[in-house]
């Protein structure tokens, strides 16, 4: 606890320092903001809005933006209700202006994507300008934000159907970075994620969460109970690790073993239970040949089925 208090104090002091002391970066940012505001005031937005852009950008995927939520002019919050393309790409007179023949046209003020010249922080600022809301309260400081993931790394804006928003195509967007999870989700025992019946975002909140693994629930177990409410209890006879964290026994993305288990019974059970008054012990080929109930079939669960807890007054041994 002493160390914990120290850590807490250290964080508190860091926070105090970070927030109370005006920094050079903050001053620079303020200056930049002032410059941006000034630039905005005299910004030379294209007089004809998106029509200016469509003179050149007349093919998909650029034109697909016109069929998205962002292009609904009836909603005053959208980019197209304001400066259209330049709401996101910034006022770009240097880009829209026709240059001398043979002269390379300057890029828009803000460009998006992995090869964009605009830094990720600046790209994200454009999105955060509208989308930093109650659905993304924990985005800043989240694993993805802190790792420099751009909004457009996952989201495709120039399509009426953003793949990451569909359960069937969402996993592949996540797999672009999460290769290990892709491999695990192909294992014999897995949640139906690659089959399109469970989306990554049903368990995870990629925009930030009060949990380590960006879970959608407040704990691992609360996340699991969203679909497995029968295991919530509370039960009369609880199994300690089950209440603590489902991932003590299960690996949620996939397993070679049945039921998404890290290991199968009896070996998994024997990692904690080698007690007296019970025929425990080494289980191997001789027991297999003899069809010992502690090994074959459901193994320990041939008898001790209620491993998630029992509400039977005689269920202390998980048999009722």
């Amino acid at each position: 606890m002493r160390l914990f208090r120290r850590a807490f104090i250290a964080i508190g002091l860091s926070l105090l320092w970070a927030t109370a002391v005006p920094t050079a970066a903050e001053a620079a940012d303020k200056e930049a903001a002032t410059q941006v505001a000034a630039a905005d005031a005299k910004a030379e937005y294209a007089a004809n809005g998106e029509q200016t852009c469509l003179k050149c950008h007349d093919k998909a995927p650029a034109t697909n933006i016109l069929h998205t939520k962002h292009a609904v002019k009836g909603d005053a919050r959208t980019p197209f209700a304001n400066h259209q393309c330049e709401s996101c790409h910034g006022a770009s007179p240097q880009h829209t202006r026709k240059g001398a023949e043979g002269e390379k046209r300057a890029p828009p003020t803000v460009t998006f994507g992995p090869k964009a010249s605009t830094p990720v922080e600046e790209q994200n600022k454009v999105c955060e300008g509208c989308h930093e809301n109650s659905a993304r309260i924990s985005w800043k400081g989240s694993q993805h934000q802190f790792a420099g993931v751009a909004c457009v790394s996952c989201h495709d804006l120039h399509t009426p159907r953003d793949p990451v928003l569909s359960k069937t195509s969402q996993p592949e967007v996540c797999f672009n970075c999460h290769k290990q999870q892709r491999a695990e989700l192909h294992k014999p025992s897995h949640h139906p994620v690659i089959e399109g019946k469970v989306g990554c975002a049903e368990c995870h909140n990629p925009h930030g969460s009060p949990t380590d693994k960006l879970l959608s629930g407040i704990t691992v177990n609360d996340t699991c109970y969203q679909c497995h409410a029968e295991k919530r209890g509370p039960f009369l006879w609880e199994h300690g690790p089950v209440r603590e964290d489902c991932t003590i026994c299960h690996t949620p993305h996939g397993s070679v073993q049945p039921a998404l288990l890290k290991n199968r019974a009896p070996f998994l059970c024997q990692q904690c239970h080698q007690i007296g008054h019970h025929p425990f012990g080494a289980r191997g080929d001789t027991d297999l040949a003899g069809f010992q109930p502690q090994l074959v079939g459901k193994a320990c669960l041939n008898c001790h089925q209620q491993v998630h807890g029992s509400n039977h007054p005689s269920g202390v041994r998980n048999m009722r």
């Binding site: 970070a18 927030t19 970066a25 802190f146 704990t219 209890g233």
Partner: peptide
């Protein structure tokens, strides 16, 4: 049976230097 769950999580993110 009754279980009471309480969560409190606070955090910050800052850029004190460029």
């Amino acid at each position: 049976g009754e279980v009471r769950n309480t969560l409190a999580e606070v955090g910050f993110v800052t850029r004190p230097m460029t």
